[in-house]
Structure formats: C-alpha cells, structure tokens
Design a protein around this nucleic acid. Structure first.
Length: 893
DNA sequence: TAGACATTCCAG
DNA sequence: CATCGCTGGAATGTCTA
C-alpha cells in the first residue's frame, strides 16, 4: 500500500465534522485501525469484496471471531468490536442465536459465517437470505435510515439494495424499535428506552407516550461504558439528578455573570437578604405531573411520596413532608424508605420529571427577576435563590407572601418558602423555620435572641457536615443557643480548623464570614467559573485498556466542549480514579454502583493553556497509565480542568507562556541557562523542569559553536521533549536524572514510585500482549512484535549510529523510514502511548549519548530526524497529539 | 516560605 | 428488572525548590 499523503483523507474530513461536537465519532478510529491492519497485509491477499459491509460477530463462531475480523478487514469491510445500536451493523454474523437475541435481532440480517467465506471465495457479495440464521423467510429488512446514517461516506445503500431488492421503499421510515406503534409518538430522536416505573403497582407505562406493547420495547439493549461509551454517557447524564443539578447551577451562574458583569461590586454588604426555595421540589413536581389515571386519589399532604428511578438500591431524590414524618430522608435508598412505612401505609414512588422541573424553575426565576425590590437575584440552585433587597423599609413579609403566591400560580401549585435575615446565614436559618410553605423573618438586634438559636443544632449551620460534627465530638446534640455561650473562637478553630472555626463563630453571632460575603459584594467574581469537570462514578465497568481509552476520549470531548461553551482554556488537567477497595465485593449492593473504593488522582500541567480535545485526551491516557489502576478494578473516572483562562488570552505569541519560557522566537536562540533571568521564568513544573533538562543537556559539551548546525535544531531535543504529554516528560526526565546519578527523589517516595512504575508496566504489558482482551493486531518493527524488545532494538540502533569517534553520520535513511513507518502504525493503530514512548526513548537515549560523547554530527542528524520527521508523524493524528504545542514547535523550527 | 499538587469536605 | 453515586469551590495537608 502506497504511503500517499492523502490515504486517510476521509478520516480527516470526519474529524473536521465531529470537531467541537459533544462526542466525537468512534467509528473513525475503528476504521483507521482496520485500514492500518489492511495496510500490513500482503497486497495479493486483499480485495474489496466486502466493501460496504459493516459486520458484527455475535457469540462463538467457526471460524473464530479473530479470524473473521481478519477476513472482513482484508476484504474491505468494516468490523465492529461491539454493537452500539442495531443500526450500526449491516450484517450480524452468528452460528446460532439464543431466543432472547432472536427477538432482539429479528429485524436484522443475521447470517452464518459461511456467508462471509463463500462471498470472499466467489469474489462477490452473495445474497444473504440463504445464510440467514433466523430462518430467512419474510424478514423485514434493515431500516434504511439507520444504515444511511451509520456510514455517510461509504456507498452502503447501493451495495445493500443490489443484493437485497426486498429493501423496499416502504421501510424508509421504519423506526429501529419496532414497539413504538403509535405514529403520534413525538420524535424523541435517539435511543428509545422503556422507562421502568418504580411505582408499587406492577403496571407499567407511566411514560408520557403510551406504549401498547411495552414488553417488546424491553428488548432494547442499553449502552454500557465499555460497549458504547458515548451513548452511555449521554444516557447516564439524561437520567442523573446530580448531574442535572450541577449543570443547572452552572447555567444559572453563567447567565448571572453575563447579565451583570458590567455592574460594579458593592462597597458595603447589604443589610437585608431574602432566601427563597421550593419545598421538596422534585417530589412536588413529580406529584403535580403524575399519571393521574394511575394515581387518581393520591393526596400529597397526607400520603408519603418519594421520587426515584427504581425500587431497591435507588436513591430517594426528594420526598414530601408526609414521608419525612415517617422517617424517610433524601438520599436514602428506596427499599430502605419502604421499610420505614408502618403497616397499612405504602410509599408511593414517582419517576423524575426533569422537563417539568426545568419549567417550574424558569417560572420561579421569572417571578424573582421581575421583582423591582431586588438589587440582585443570586442563583443558588435550580430551586433556590438569594435575593438582595435594594433598601430597607419595605414590608418584607408582605413581599415574601406575594412572591410565594405568584410562584405557586405560575408553577401550577409548587409551594416555596422564604427566610429573611440581616445576613446570608440568618436568612438561611430563617428559611428552615419557614418551611414548609411559610415565611420567617429573623429579627433581633444585633442578632436574634436565644429563643431563635435554641431551634437549631450545629448541623444546621452552612458548612457543617458529618466530618465537622465528628470533630466537634458529639456536640451535635447541643443547640446553637448553648453552643454560642459555651464555646470560644480559639476552641472552635482548634477543633474545626482555622477557616471553618471562624465561619461557625461568625454564624453563631449572626454574621457571614468573609468568604460568604464575597457572594453579596461581588457575585460576578464568585460566579465566574474557575474549573470544569466531569465525574462518572456509576456504571463504570471495564475489561480492557482500549475500552478505557475510548471512554477517556469521550470524557475529553465532553470537557473540551464545556470549556468551549464558557470560552475558556485550561492550564491543568487532573484524572481522578476510583478503584475498588481491597476486600470490597466485585459487585456492590447498589446496582452498578461504585461500592467501597480508594480514590487516586494525578494532575498534569499543560504548559500552554488549551481547550483542545487532542491535548486533553493524550494527557488523560498518559495519566491513566501513570495511575496504573487495573482496568477491572475501576469504579469511577473523573476529569477536572483547572487554571482556566479566557480563550482570548492565549495568543500564540504571548511571551513567557510557552513551555520553554526562554524560547521567545527563532531568532532568540537559547541564552545559556545561567544567564536566563529568573524573573522571566514563570512558575510551573513544566517550565522549571525544562530548565533543568536544558542545563543537564548542555553542560558537558565543549566546542559546540565550532560545529555548523542548522539554527532550528538547537533547541531540538528539548523542544521535542516538551511537546510530549507531561506525564511522559516526567518519566523521561526521571530516567535522565537516574542515569546521571542525580537523586531528586526521596527514599520513601522512591519505593512507592518503583511500585507504581512496576504496576504501570504490568498494565501496559497487559495491554500489549492482549491478555487484557484487546483485539488489536500486533504492530511489528523489524519483524518484532514485543514492544519491549522493539525498545531494545531502537536503543541499540541509536547507540550504534552515534557511538562513533566522530566518524558516524547518523542513521541510514532506509532505517529511518522503517522507524517512521512503525511510529505511524502505532499511532493509527490506537497505540499512541507506545508511539510516544518509543519516540521519547530515542530522545532520551540521544541526550545520554550526547552528554557522554561529543559525536555532534550524528547528534545533529538525529535531532533533525526527531523534530522534522518523527514529530510531524505524531502530530498527524488529531486525537493523539497536541495541536497547539505542535504549532509552537513548528513555528520554532 | 511560597507554590504545586493530592485529598477531603460540603452543598444542592 | 435493576439504575443513572455530579460537580464546583474552599480548605487543609504534604512535598519540594
């Protein structure tokens, strides 16, 4: 196969289309893998016979799955490792199907492996019907729409219809899920799922659209992280209350900043604030929007009601006051809540109604924002706001009652309560007394009387949670009244820490601490986003490293999109993983929950602030390998981006923001490190380590100036190194430090470090050898498939080409081509980290060589190869390398 | 001693 | 059938230059 530059042009187009989208196209990568595979095969053994076929293999087959993969790819087809939706494959290959699968795939072309073999043998795609595993008769064809959307660029349709003329036009609009019988069902696009009704009665179908035949709909397969990370995340977030809560809050804050950023901060804290929120919001909304035929006589005031997804280990998101009176609490599991019901009483479980919640919240905020008495309406959450009154003297209670009335009317019956006070903390405490469905104004001068404080415990104070109560040593039974007389500021600070101690002390005197006051004085500064994150700690179950990589790609896409939406870039990325705790059961009590876990995290500075998916994805994969959590033990994945700055602020020419710091332009070639002014070296590990690296590299060379060198290559290896993900940079530097005998690592840490690296090595090894279940074909270098041995070969090669006495000119062109090809295959074959590893290996080996012998010709030659030839290969893959640093390097060179 | 990073806690 | 355990921000502890 020719190495023509345009050979993956269609991939690039796909990339462009998907760039900036919520999730990027996984298929592109699969195809790239397969193309790489095909490129490795001898030219005579390939064909285009299966062109247009997208094949999924179900269950055990003869020949086995791997052989079929090979066959399909070899003959121009697309092989799916897993089935994201039934529309994704044109053919499902199986020997036989269990009954359940027969139902699931009853509208698909399910063929025996023989169909593939015979088609290839005869050199054309044979009719599939005679090979049908389901009996072949009168099967409806594959939905044309889904086939078309699955592969935009391949002429699938033509190939399909020529073989199966029965794909009649009548099917054009057949939905994938056959059970949606009513044509009036709203175009709920994406995945149709049967919403399990958590309600006690066994009857189903509470969903807004009525389904005549729900049981058939149940055959729908649900996306899992491993099988379809993108669909999993989308579906998960559509159903996660905590995700919604966070998302809504972020949106409200952003809207606030947009509307008020022009206004100056207040100079003095306001004297009166009003804290307002809905009573048991989710439960109220769920009740108001319940299926009235199923719950005709439900009485919200008397009957206990809770909102949750299921009935066992499902969290109670919200419950009404009748349920609370019986001991039900938010966050409790549904089964546990049920158990608290006295005999004869049942807890009614209602499903979430997120759309209705959003609508009610919109009405709520509309009422508040429309009130002329408020200087500011500060959003706290979807159902809660702090309103800052313009002045004093209004009739606060009357105002509050008026607002509550309007809110109830405009939300169709949601009640809200209002607490009023001279500070945030007093308004909040007052709100507690106001609930449910009331108003309370905290009075008293300068602070409320003991009778007010008597009604609270420490747990009622903002900022005081379980941990703080534990630190107070069971003081949770004391009322705030006794506490304010019995404690002192120093004792609180000893017990709770400086900040929280001070905060509690202030609260006991009816005042807000500095931190809380900031929200009143300069809300825009407080609401301005300082970090971006995605956390997934439910449903995380992986079997192989590539599955995790694919999920990290999705996460990177998600946070990158968030960054773009708020117009920011990140300077720092953290990967946080939850790992099943030793001794914890493999499957925890909560369905697909994380169970008992240990948390680990590692951060990486990006050097140049970035919002690029590729940069983020690369860093995340590197961090994942550094953390070395065995894939099967993973129970949670979180990505946090910090050190945000506006995306305008990162002009490509901002001096001092680049990694090298000293490198400002091609003309300003490296001043000796010793003379680099300290002040221009910004803080940041990348910068300081880079300095160290350069010092290390440069020092032992004597007569450098005497050798004519291309000006560009002077910062060569350093530039190359800096363009690597920070994790790898760190490793390379550690290697260097170790080799030179520099001991920058403490004793205890060293051991932990060794252990971690051993584990990381095992993880990578598992990935390589396929023992983790990877289906990737081996990539060979000089016939060698073992990465370890390839590394040794490469090292020896570098050594041989510049170990000379000054006579060596560097490597042979032929060898360089072979090496480049190897790196390229690694990249395309989804093993970027290995590509990076082997490339950094060369630079390390080189740096070591250079410090020990002065073979400058060969060294310069190698630098040239690294920077001008290897780096571009790495850069070519959008999702695997770092486009922005690439610019840096190219501009430099 | 400042700062970077890891970890913990809280809220809704 | 399950079930959807998020996320931003502050504070504190620890290590290093």
């Amino acid at each position: 196969m020719p190495d023509s530059p345009g050979k993956d042009s269609d991939t690039r187009e796909d990339d462009n289309v998907s760039h900036g989208g919520y999730f990027h196209n996984k298929r592109v990568k699969q195809r790239a893998q397969d193309r790489a595979l095909q490129a490795q095969m001898p030219a005579g053994s390939t064909s285009r016979v299966l062109s247009g076929c997208t094949v999924y293999v179900n269950g055990h087959t003869d020949p086995p799955r791997l052989a079929l993969h090979d066959l399909v790819v070899r003959h121009g087809g697309v092989f799916l490792h897993y089935l994201s939706s039934k529309g994704a494959a044109t053919h499902i290959v199986a020997e036989h199907l269990p009954p359940r699968k027969r139902v699931e795939f009853r509208n698909c072309k399910v063929v025996s492996p023989r169909w593939l073999l015979d088609s290839v043998q005869q050199g054309r795609q044979l009719p599939w019907a005679p090979y049908s595993v389901l009996g072949g008769s009168a099967l409806s064809a594959f939905p044309v729409t889904s086939v078309a959307s699955a592969e935009g660029s391949t002429p699938t349709l033509a190939a399909e219809s020529s073989n199966t003329p029965t794909v009649a036009a009548e099917h054009t609009n057949t939905p994938t899920v056959p059970s949606v019988s009513a044509p009036t069902v709203a175009a709920g696009n994406s995945i149709t799922r049967t919403v399990a009704s958590p309600t006690v009665p066994a009857t189903r179908a509470d969903a807004p659209s009525t389904r005549a035949d729900a049981p058939a709909a149940r055959a729908e397969t649900f996306p899992t992280v491993a099988s379809d990370p993108e669909a999993f995340l989308r579906s998960y977030f559509e159903h996660s209350r905590l995700h919604k809560l966070s998302e809504w809050k972020a949106r409200l804050r952003q809207e606030f900043v947009r509307a008020h950023s022009a206004e100056p901060p207040l100079t003095a804290p306001p004297t009166r604030v009003l804290h307002i929120d809905f009573d048991c919001f989710f439960a109220t909304v769920a009740f108001l929007h319940r299926d009235k035929r199923r719950f005709p006589s439900l009485d919200f005031a008397r009957d206990p009601v809770a909102v949750c997804h299921g009935r066992g280990s499902s969290d109670v998101a919200s419950c009404n006051y009748a349920a609370r009176a019986l001991g039900v609490r938010n966050g409790m599991w549904a089964a546990s809540a049920q158990r608290r019901m006295p005999a004869g009483t049942t807890l009614t479980l209602l499903p979430y109604d997120f759309a209705a919640i959003e609508a009610a919240s919109a009405a709520f905020y509309a009422v508040l924002r429309g009130c002329p008495d408020f200087r500011w309406v500060l959003p706290v959450s979807i159902d809660e706001a702090v309103c800052v009154l313009r002045g004093e003297g209004e009739d606060e209670i009357a105002l509050a009652q008026q607002l509550r009335r309007e809110i109830r009317e405009r939300t169709g019956g949601c009640t809200a309560s209002v607490g009023i006070g001279a500070s945030l903390v007093l308004a909040r405490l007052a709100l507690r007394l106001a609930k449910p469905d009331g108003v309370y104004a905290a009075g008293g001068d300068p602070s409320p009387p003991d009778s007010f404080w008597e009604q609270f415990g420490v747990r009622d104070l903002p900022g005081v949670g379980g941990a703080a109560v534990a630190k107070l040593g069971g003081a949770d039974t004391a009322t705030l009244s006794t506490l304010r007389h019995s404690t002192t500021l120093p004792s609180l600070q000893t017990q709770l820490g400086n900040k929280l101690g001070g905060k509690v002390w202030a609260a006991l005197h009816g005042q807000d601490d500095r931190e809380s006051q900031r929200m009143l004085l300069d809300p825009c500064a407080v609401f301005d986003r300082k970090s971006v994150a995605v956390d997934i700690n439910w449903g995380i179950r992986f079997a192989t490293v590539p599955q995790v990589d694919a999920f990290l790609d999705v996460c990177a896409g998600y946070v990158a999109n968030k960054l773009r939406e708020c117009g920011k870039r990140a300077g720092n990325v953290t990967l946080k993983l939850h790992r099943r705790a030793a001794g914890a059961p493999v499957e925890p009590p909560k369905y697909l929950g994380m169970g008992r876990c240990d948390a680990v995290s590692q951060a990486a500075g990006l050097g140049v602030p970035s919002g690029d998916v590729g940069v983020l994805a690369t860093e995340l994969k590197a961090l994942f390998r550094a953390l070395a959590v065995p894939v099967r033990e993973l129970r949670g994945v979180a990505v946090h981006l910090a050190k945000l700055c506006g995306d305008q602020e990162v002009g490509p020419r901002t001096p001092g923001q680049w990694l090298g710091k000293g490198r400002v332009g091609a003309g300003a070639l490296p001043a000796p490190v010793s003379t680099t002014p300290k002040a221009t070296t910004p803080k940041g590990s990348a910068g300081t380590s880079a300095e160290r690296y350069r010092r290390l590299r440069v020092s032992p060379v004597k007569d450098r100036a005497a050798v004519p060198r291309p000006a560009a290559s002077d910062p060569g290896v350093a530039a190359f190194l800096e363009a690597l993900p920070s994790q790898l940079q760190r490793e390379v530097r550690r290697d260097l430090a170790g080799a030179i005998g520099e001991s920058g690592v403490g004793r205890g840490r060293l051991r932990a470090e060794m252990q971690r690296r051993a584990e990381a090595a095992r993880a990578v090894n598992a990935h390589l050898t396929g023992s983790g279940g990877t289906l990737l074909a081996p990539v060979r270098f000089q016939g060698e498939a073992s990465f370890k041995r390839v590394c040794r070969t490469v090292e020896a090669w570098v050594a041989a080409t510049c170990s000379g006495n000054g006579a060596s000119d560097g490597p042979h062109e032929r060898d360089v081509l072979v090496f480049l090809r190897y790196v390229e295959k690694l990249c395309v074959g989804d093993r970027v980290h290995l590509a990076l590893r082997v490339a950094s290996l060369v630079s390390t080996a080189l740096a070591l060589r250079e410090t020990s012998c002065g073979d400058t010709r060969a060294y310069a030659e190698w630098e040239h190869i690294l920077v001008r030839r290897v780096l571009p290969v790495l850069n070519r893959n959008r999702l695997t390398f770092q486009t922005e640093r690439k610019l840096d390097v190219e501009w430099e060179v």
